[in-house]
Design a protein around this nucleic acid. Sequence first.
DNA 1: AGATTGCATCTACGAACGTCGATGGATACG
DNA 2: CGTATCCATCGACGTTCGTAGATGCAATCT
Lengths: 117, 117
Amino acid sequence: MSVELELSPKTKRASGAPCCEPVVFPDVDREQALRLAEVAKALGDPIRLQLVDVLRKHAGKVCVCELVALFDIAQPTLSHHLKKLRDAGIVDSERRGVWAYYYVLPAALDELSAWLA
Amino acid sequence: MSVELELSPKTKRASGAPCCEPVVFPDVDREQALRLAEVAKALGDPIRLQLVDVLRKHAGKVCVCELVALFDIAQPTLSHHLKKLRDAGIVDSERRGVWAYYYVLPAALDELSAWLA
DNA sequence: AGATTGCATCTACGAACGTCGATGGATACG
DNA sequence: CGTATCCATCGACGTTCGTAGATGCAATCT
């Protein structure tokens, strides 16, 4: 009732006490935020983080059958986690006969690392 | 039928074709994985990641009323995200009168950064 | 050829998440 | 005082996530 309609929400500060500098920062690479959050989200599970850790420490490629032995979760669950990591661009896989070998794609982790640095 | 029952699942490899080196890596700091995943999970949302980005670029402390203006989400939702970041130990807050000011606690991000490096 | 093994996909379901509106407490202003 | 503002919490809703079992396919061994 009887409100000043012309004022934008931003200027409608408390009657006479500014809380801080008028503006903080306009934006923060909205596009990159989506990408970084996707990678961070993929790392946001202890098992996936350990998976990445194992794969990173093994510069080479690691067979899924070995990973299954390390974590006490069912094989389909492990496959699901690996798919999450693959979708996030953190790892990739390669089939050699019966076995699938996974390895780290450094680009995604590097981007996150650069943002954190 | 006539299967060797004494063998543990690990040693029951396919009859004569090893998939890779016998063992990958025993463990990976199980405790630290939980901590790192918690931080990564908190960063696994574009809004929270941008929030952290804004707070980091502002070495000082930022009022919530300014943050509300930057992102077009409702104020309770923003408060919810800030709580997530606080619970993960990424940020902390301080009340000054009516306003709440948020700032980054570098330790959590540093730990994640160190692991990625 | 038949059996076995390794892996991915599909389905299912309980748990957790993201968002919002409404409420309430604390502080500052008139 | 009374009122307005700022912020956190609560309740509710729909969506997504994490896990497991079942199924299916490909490749290897006997």
